[in-house]
Write a protein that binds this DNA or RNA. Structure first.
Lengths: 212, 212, 212, 212
DNA sequence: ACCGACGGGACTTCCCGTTGCT
DNA sequence: AGCAACGGGAAGTCCCGTCGGT
């Protein structure tokens, strides 16, 4: 047989990627190992060589896939803006409009989906979810702090608290959108987010800085 | 067994209640029919007499249990306040503090949990979730409209949009809290909500009306 | 409620008729009591008032429905012919061509179907099947005997043996046709039957008496 | 357990053989997977590894077991005779007398049983049954053709049609015998078959060539 | 005579994980 | 590093029959 060269790392990553897809579509409980094997073309032996159990795959998806996703989708892009409010708005817009890899509007935010499903079922998942949420919040926090220094954000804003709340808003909005699937809801979420972000502006500059 | 009397309606309700508990703990996919039978003391035949399938049970839980829950937890209590902002705040506080039947902070909002898990998996679920969300939003909407008329809310506020966003905030916060389980996050969510609600006050009266 | 007048006999017969349909379509093992109830609009209580068990329904179908069917389909029609060979041929042709109530070619002969399925599984069924087969054979036998007396059939023919074999041919042909569903097979069966029947003619008259 | 050696092919064959036995006794609908496991000593997982579903097992029994049975029981033995009429008679006698593996008289012909039960219920089964019947008929056909060339069979005989009819006779007789279980019926069937076969002899040689 | 809630159990499906092997 | 046979068990479906009622 002219088999593909054995590359353990790549095999592992293919399994994780397939597992992510399955989880994103059906939830962790709905994810089927057989389906992962079908998608990767690998066999059970290979999978159980790399992972000890189904739960272990789930943890790996969190640690090695979703973590990177958060990094690429939120943390890095946000860091490129001097004005945090502009940054968050632009990044959110980007995600909402991109018909890209992950359809946040139809299938929700992968992290949020897992947070809902697994937080109260498994402490290992909860910990990982919590850590990623903290990273996400921290990114907003640092951005807001820089914004403060540069005069884009009011000096009195509690950046940690605000960052946490922004994440809550984003999760809540994706949640609502996933269930409602209509334009009106999308608009309401966008307007609400904008309104909240604007309220973080310095008292004198308070004006809608981002009209779509 | 004490329960020898035949009361189909009560039996059905007991099944639905047990199913709700199971779903609230493990999600719909994680709900085990065997467990429902164990909790109710009924047998497969009885359950299958009342419901055609697992999915059918899920729908009944939405239609006959969670709908009432939304009514009792949100719609009726909110309607009793003249000031919507006070109303929403008080009701939220109540829910957060009550160690009551449903632990929103540890196990999340039942409707939100199902919205996350099932919206993209089953259209029948999505429809039901959407309908309940609309009821919930409508209750806020009507409350805000009365608030406008009574001067508690700014005349320029788009009440429908604001109501939708408030629901998004509430879902996002329960979602975050379920995963983080800490006091800091709770505070951040509360402050954020308060801040947003206050921004709906009439321009001249804009001051934090509800300090905890 | 303007309920239908209660007529136990009619109810019983409706149940039997529905049971026959179910058995004819799915076999006795494949017959579902729920389906009988659906077809008759009756409920379980009614059915189990008239019959002790599923098996009991099956027996009733044999005794009260299929017995009549054999009588109406074979015994009476055959008796009307003086020439048994003409009689059998005509009756067979009639059945094969009628798009009537029972589609012998697509769904087989009801008696034969049950004979195959149940003979070796339940002695009560086997007995009933055997009795009906004997009735059927007897009808041919009597017809052949009259044919002998009238010169339509060779004097040396063992009428009982021939009758039995004719039934075997008829069952075998319906069986083959049910599985093959094609015209060629139908023709082969018809030619074979004709050929055999003709061989029963008196030695001097031996010529194909029935050309289609 | 003795059987620790892993031999997938043998395991598969053991499953098919056990399934055949179950089907032969109770029909396909009456076949119990649990019973197959009990007979083979295997577990659900093993069975489900080899077959996708109950239907899949049924198909495998047709394709890999009954097909061979037809080959061994009819096709090969018939091919060894120069005189087809002698061949068919001898083979039939053999089967009827052998108290062998398959009791055609008590439990019927496996193929015929399935033809009756499944032809109108499942198209996949019908196709497979049809194919095997065609093979069987073809074997008779070729034998009769050789018989023609060698002068054992009348030149005017339509061999295909006759072969089909012979199969019909054989199926009809086993069907009758299964239900009647008596010697008289057996005799009648035998005489009838002999009579028909003899009618295929060349006009001049027409005499009962096989007296028992 | 008829209704329907329920008992009770069996059956197929289906999946996770282990283990011998290459 | 990867393969595939198999163990083992539980879930959901589905159905026959009983029994208290009207």
């Amino acid at each position: 047989m002219m088999n593909v060269v054995r590359d353990p790392d790549q095999t592992r990553n293919r399994l994780i990627a397939a597992a992510f897809d399955e989880i994103y579509e059906n939830g962790f409980q709905g994810m089927r190992i057989e389906e992962i094997l079908k998608r990767t073309g690998l066999k059970k032996g290979a999978l159980y060589h790399h992972f000890a159990s189904k739960l272990d795959i789930g943890y790996a998806v969190m640690d090695e896939f979703i973590a990177d996703m958060i990094e690429d989708t939120w943390i890095k892009p946000i860091a490129e803006y001097d004005d945090p409010i502009e940054g968050i708005s632009k990044v959110v817009l980007n995600i909402a409009q991109s018909d890209g890899e992950y359809d946040y509007i139809k299938k929700g935010c992968p992290l949020n989906n897992l947070a809902q499903e697994m937080s109260s079922l498994d402490e290992g998942f909860r910990q990982r979810i919590f850590n990623l949420l903290q990273l996400w919040i921290l990114a907003f926090d640092q951005s807001l702090q820089r914004g403060k220094e540069n005069g884009f954000v009011d000096k009195d804003v509690d950046t940690t608290s605000a960052s946490t709340f922004i994440v809550a808003i984003l999760e809540g909005c994706t949640s609502l959108l996933k269930a409602s699937q209509d334009e009106t809801t999308l608009q309401a979420c966008w307007i609400g987010l904008e309104s909240y972000l604007t309220s973080l502006r310095p008292a004198t500059v308070k004006s809608n800085s981002l009209t779509q």
